[in-house]
Protein backbone atom coordinates (compact mmCIF):
# COMPACT_ATOMS: atom_id res chain seq x y z
CA UNK A 1 0.00 0.00 0.00
CA UNK A 2 1.31 3.41 -0.96
CA UNK A 3 2.53 5.51 1.98
CA UNK A 4 1.12 8.65 0.40
CA UNK A 5 -2.33 7.08 0.14
CA UNK A 6 -2.19 6.04 3.79
CA UNK A 7 -1.21 9.58 4.78
CA UNK A 8 -3.99 11.16 2.73
CA UNK A 9 -6.62 8.83 4.25
CA UNK A 10 -5.28 9.59 7.72
CA UNK A 11 -5.38 13.34 7.01
CA UNK A 12 -8.97 13.07 5.78
CA UNK A 13 -10.06 11.36 8.99
CA UNK A 14 -8.03 13.84 11.08
CA UNK A 15 -9.79 16.70 9.32
CA UNK A 16 -13.18 15.24 10.22
CA UNK A 17 -12.13 14.64 13.83
CA UNK A 18 -10.77 18.20 14.11
CA UNK A 19 -13.90 19.71 12.56
CA UNK A 20 -16.39 17.84 14.74
CA UNK A 21 -14.04 18.06 17.74
CA UNK A 22 -14.03 21.84 17.46
CA UNK A 23 -17.81 21.99 17.52
CA UNK A 24 -17.91 19.45 20.37
CA UNK A 25 -15.58 21.66 22.41
CA UNK A 26 -17.62 24.78 21.53
CA UNK A 27 -20.91 23.08 22.51
CA UNK A 28 -19.31 21.77 25.70
CA UNK A 29 -18.21 25.27 26.72
CA UNK A 30 -21.69 26.64 25.92
CA UNK A 31 -23.28 23.87 28.02
CA UNK A 32 -20.98 24.67 30.96
CA UNK A 33 -21.71 28.40 30.72
CA UNK A 34 -25.46 27.71 30.62
CA UNK A 35 -25.14 25.42 33.64
CA UNK A 36 -23.14 28.04 35.56
CA UNK A 37 -25.73 30.69 34.69
CA UNK A 38 -28.46 28.25 35.83
CA UNK A 39 -30.24 28.30 32.49
CA UNK A 40 -31.78 25.42 30.59
CA UNK A 41 -28.79 23.59 29.07
CA UNK A 42 -30.43 20.28 28.05
CA UNK A 43 -30.43 21.08 24.30
CA UNK A 44 -26.79 22.13 24.34
CA UNK A 45 -25.83 19.06 26.39
CA UNK A 46 -27.59 16.75 23.94
CA UNK A 47 -25.88 18.57 21.07
CA UNK A 48 -22.53 18.05 22.78
CA UNK A 49 -23.31 14.37 23.27
CA UNK A 50 -24.27 13.84 19.62
CA UNK A 51 -21.22 15.73 18.34
CA UNK A 52 -18.97 13.85 20.77
CA UNK A 53 -20.35 10.54 19.53
CA UNK A 54 -19.82 11.57 15.91
CA UNK A 55 -16.23 12.60 16.70
CA UNK A 56 -15.62 9.31 18.53
CA UNK A 57 -17.12 7.35 15.62
CA UNK A 58 -14.85 9.09 13.12
CA UNK A 59 -11.84 8.44 15.37
CA UNK A 60 -12.80 4.78 15.74
CA UNK A 61 -13.23 4.45 11.95
CA UNK A 62 -9.84 6.08 11.44
CA UNK A 63 -8.14 3.58 13.73
CA UNK A 64 -9.97 0.65 12.14
CA UNK A 65 -9.18 1.70 8.57
CA UNK A 66 -5.52 2.35 9.34
CA UNK A 67 -5.20 -0.98 11.19
CA UNK A 68 -6.78 -2.80 8.23
CA UNK A 69 -4.44 -1.05 5.81
CA UNK A 70 -1.38 -1.96 7.88
CA UNK A 71 -2.53 -5.58 8.11
CA UNK A 72 -3.03 -5.74 4.32
CA UNK A 73 0.46 -4.31 3.76
CA UNK A 74 2.08 -6.82 6.11
CA UNK A 75 0.18 -9.73 4.45
CA UNK A 76 1.37 -8.64 1.01
CA UNK A 77 4.94 -8.40 2.29
CA UNK A 78 4.69 -11.88 3.87
CA UNK A 79 3.41 -13.34 0.57
CA UNK A 80 6.44 -11.91 -1.18
Amino acid sequence: MDGRRRRSIKEGFDLGVGFFGFFTAAFCVITLVYEILRQDALGWALGTLVLGLVTAAIWWSRQAVLRRMDRAVSEIEQDR
Binding site: K10, E11, G12, F13, D14, L15, G16, V17, G18, F19, F20, G21, F22, F23, A26
Partner: peptide, 16 residues
Protein backbone atom coordinates in the same frame (compact mmCIF):
# COMPACT_ATOMS: atom_id res chain seq x y z
CA UNK B 1 1.12 14.90 15.13
CA UNK B 2 -2.34 16.44 14.92
CA UNK B 3 -1.86 18.52 11.75
CA UNK B 4 -5.15 17.28 10.33
CA UNK B 5 -6.89 17.96 13.63
CA UNK B 6 -5.69 21.56 13.59
CA UNK B 7 -6.86 22.05 10.00
CA UNK B 8 -10.24 20.53 10.90
CA UNK B 9 -10.57 22.85 13.88
CA UNK B 10 -9.62 25.83 11.69
CA UNK B 11 -12.27 24.75 9.18
CA UNK B 12 -14.81 24.47 11.99
CA UNK B 13 -13.87 27.93 13.29
CA UNK B 14 -14.34 29.43 9.82
CA UNK B 15 -17.83 27.92 9.59
CA UNK B 16 -18.95 29.23 12.97
Amino acid sequence: PGKGLIMGAVLGASMF
